[in-house]
Design a protein around this nucleic acid. Structure first.
Ligand SMILES: [Zn+2]
Ligand SMILES: [Zn+2]
Ligand SMILES: [Zn+2]
Ligand SMILES: [Zn+2]
Lengths: 147, 147
DNA sequence: TGATATAATGTTACATTGTAACATTAAAGT
DNA sequence: ACTTTAATGTTACAATGTAACATTATATCA
C-alpha cells in the first residue's frame, strides 16, 4: 500500500470523514496516478475495477474530497489532483502552477503570495478560496516554443 | 457610442488588429453589458442583431480578442470580460477576484501579488500568463451565507 | 469589370464536463 | 425480518468547446 493513502485514510478517520469502498478506490486512483486526472479519466480507471461504476459516483465522491481539502479541483483544465499538503500541519494556503500547454501541475506554498492574498482579502472583504491557480508555461513547454 | 469601445477600436487600429463587423459587434456586446458573459450569452446577444450568427464565430472572435489582451477568459466560470486596463499604460499584470457563488468579478492591479508572482516565475522557470484568477466569496455572498 | 485567391462565416457532427430527477441496491437500526 | 437511510446506478439533459468541411464575403489582379 502507498504511504500517502494510509495517511489520507488516517486523516479521514481522525476527521470523521466516512469513506465508502468506491470512494477509497477513487482516492487510490488519484494517489497512485501521479498526474492530475479529469473526472472521465478517473471514471475509466474505476471502471477497470468496477465495470458498473458511474459518472455520478465519481462526481459525488470528488465533491466530498474537494470539500474536505483532500483533493483540489483545478478549473483551468477540469482536473483533480491530490493535495500535496494534506498531511502537513501548516495553515494550508497552496498555489498550483498549471501549465496551459501540457497540463503539468506543481503545488507550491509561497509565503509572499499568501500574505499578499490575505491583504487583498481584507481590502476587498473577499473570502479567499484555496488553492490559487497560477497559469502559464512550464519550463519544458517554453523550450518547445522556441524550437 | 460608448467611450470604451472607441478606445478599443483606436487600440486595434494602432496595433494592426483587424476587426470585422461581427467582431466589433462582439466587443460592443461585451463592453455594454457590464457583467461577464459566457460564450452562449454573447451568442444570444449577437443573434439579436444577426440571427444567422454562429457559435464558431463567437469562439473565433473571442480567441483573437483574448490573444490580444482586449478581453480576459475566466476559466472558473467560463466567462469572458473586457480587460479594465486595456487603455492604461502600465505593464499590465491584472488579477481578477471571482466570486464562486454569484460570479461577480472585480479586476484589480496589486503590486505585491505581481512581485510575488514574478519571483515565483523566476524560481520555477514558469512563464506566467495573465490574468491571475483569485476565487472566493464576495462581500454580498458572505452575508447571504450567514443569514 | 470579371476571374481568382484569401479570409471570414456558417453548418454539421461530435467530445467532454457536469447536473437533475428518479430507480435500485446496500447498509444500518429496530 | 422489516423499515429507514445512505450510496449507487440510470436516464436524460444542458453547456462549453472543437474539428472538418461548405458557403459566402472580401480583396487582388489580369
Ligand atoms: Zn494543496
Ligand atoms: Zn508544460
Ligand atoms: Zn485586465
Ligand atoms: Zn458573490
Amino acid at each position: 500500500m502507498h504511504l500517502k493513502i494510509e495517511k489520507i485514510i488516517e486523516y479521514c478517520l481522525a476527521n470523521n470523514i466516512l469513506l465508502t469502498n468506491q470512494q477509497s478506490l477513487i482516492i487510490k486512483i488519484i494517489t497512485e496516478i501521479a498526474s492530475p486526472l479529469t473526472a472521465n479519466e478517473i471514471l475509466h480507471e474505476l471502471q477497470k475495477l468496477n465495470p458498473k461504476a458511474n459518472r455520478m459516483t465519481i462526481h459525488r465522491a470528488l465533491e466530498i474530497l474537494v470539500k474536505n481539502g483532500i483533493i483540489h479541483k483545478v478549473a483551468f483544465n477540469h482536473t483533480y489532483k491530490l493535495c500535496d499538503h494534506l498531511y502537513c500541519k501548516h495553515d494550508h494556503h497552496c498555489q498550483i502552477l498549471v501549465c496551459q500547454e501540457c497540463g503539468n501541475q506543481t503545488e507550491i506554498h509561497n509565503l509572499k503570495i499568501t500574505e499578499a492574498l490575505l491583504e487583498i482579502g481584507k481590502t476587498y472583504n473577499f473570502n479567499l478560496a484555496n488553492p490559487l491557480e497560477i497559469t502559464g508555461l512550464c519550463t519544458k513547454c517554453q523550450m518547445k516554443g522556441t524550437l
